[in-house]
Design a protein around this nucleic acid. Structure first.
Lengths: 217, 217
DNA sequence: TCAGACATGTAAGTCGTTACATGATTCA
DNA sequence: TGAATCATGTAACGACTTACATGTCTGA
């Protein structure tokens, strides 16, 4: 498997977590990981077949699924080893292609208004994103602080296949890691909003506080 | 031109800024935009040919380059219009595929030590990155506050083709936008370091401050 | 009964990188 | 003279998305 392909390991990691079908994987990523990961069917199904070929996962047809022929994949011991080896590999930093920053930089020869518009739109989108993350955060924080299973967690519970009454210690730990991952999204989104708030007045003034003058075109 | 292709517009934007060769573009991106954008030769040269075909740029051979046949590209009025139209298009947010967060999330069923290791490595890399950005920041802030052309700016000056004695108001504005773009990299990198510092003690304690216990595997 | 979720897949295309290939010029 | 930089390109591959195609089951 080529060193840079992340999809096989992402899927393998999910399968180490629990056996799933391609459809389950897609749902899991959409519901739970949507703010830091994505997978499309066009990647998932070919990758799943590849994992079976390579002996890293096994396929069996869920007998309960009848004619739907739901295919459930399970990580093999070799698959687990491959996944754990990948965890120890150096991690690629996210790709450095930020369209907004590029646009903003390139407005430096346009009217100032263009940069201001770009920035405000960006700030508003980050704020929306932030609000969504904070709603999830509140639910998770409640679950982590209170015994039992809060109602808001039912959806998550179904997705993550937890048991019905309360959380086992291991599930508590999973929930905690989930919460901590979410915090990263929140802190970064907040930093982006803070950036706009710092930068907007400077751009509009055309100069740094206490600096010499710049001149908007 | 397909709506999602950003390379043609990135290059067009650079050409609106000043006429350049493919090699110049590569250098410019590496020196100045490296923390939020990248382009490879495999994209640049085919795209440049495409822009000429589409009437968005013109090519001429720099007579001063002799047998090297340096090909300088200039944005046409149609090219400028296309670029400015793109600036007004909705901006794609950066791809949501953050390998580190994925790995961190997937360690939730591994030993806690694995997550801790991942986090510390990430923090150290962010700190290095941050230091590099802060060095550039110091140079730019000095240039923006002081008249004349500080020595540290000479390299940048060459890259951006500024005149020798001091900065014109327009160049001052370009420098300001450059500085403001850089601030975004700094604030986000700081947020990432802050995330690790917030999260590490919680992960090691296995629970939220004042929360009920989680249980590390 | 029919919309919506469940379920699996493929084909084509886009976007992008890496490695390779070639040759000129400058300067120590 | 030979290393570094200037300069332009291509071929092959890799990673990923989108649109399409197909069919099943559940529940209002």
């Amino acid at each position: 498997m080529p060193r840079k392909a992340r999809t096989p390991y992402a899927i393998l990691g999910l399968l180490c977590w629990k056996p799933m079908s391609g459809y389950d994987i897609k749902k899991m990523v959409e519901v739970g990981l949507q703010y830091f990961w994505s997978e499309s069917y066009g990647q998932i199904f070919p990758t799943l077949n590849r994992l079976v070929e390579d002996g890293l996962a096994t396929r069996r047809i869920d007998p309960a699924s009848g004619r739907r022929r739901r295919q459930v994949y399970t990580a093999t011991p070799a698959g687990r080893r491959a996944f754990e080896a990948w965890l120890r590999q150096p991690t690629d930093l996210p790709r450095l292609r930020d369209e907004l920053k590029l646009k903003f930089f390139l407005t430096s020869r346009s009217a100032v208004g263009e940069g201001v518009r770009l920035l405000k739109e960006y700030r508003d989108r980050q704020r929306e994103h932030l609000q969504m993350l904070k709603e999830s955060e509140a639910i998770l924080a409640t679950a982590l602080r209170e015994p039992g299973m809060p109602e808001e967690l039912q959806e998550l519970q179904k997705t993550l296949a937890w048991n019905e009454s309360g959380l086992t210690p291991a599930q508590c730990h999973e929930l905690l890691v989930f919460y901590l991952t979410l915090r990263s999204g929140i802190l970064v989104a907040e930093a982006r909003v803070a950036w706009v708030e710092e930068v907007l007045p400077i751009l509009q003034a055309g100069r740094l506080p206490d600096g010499r003058q710049g001149d908007p075109s």
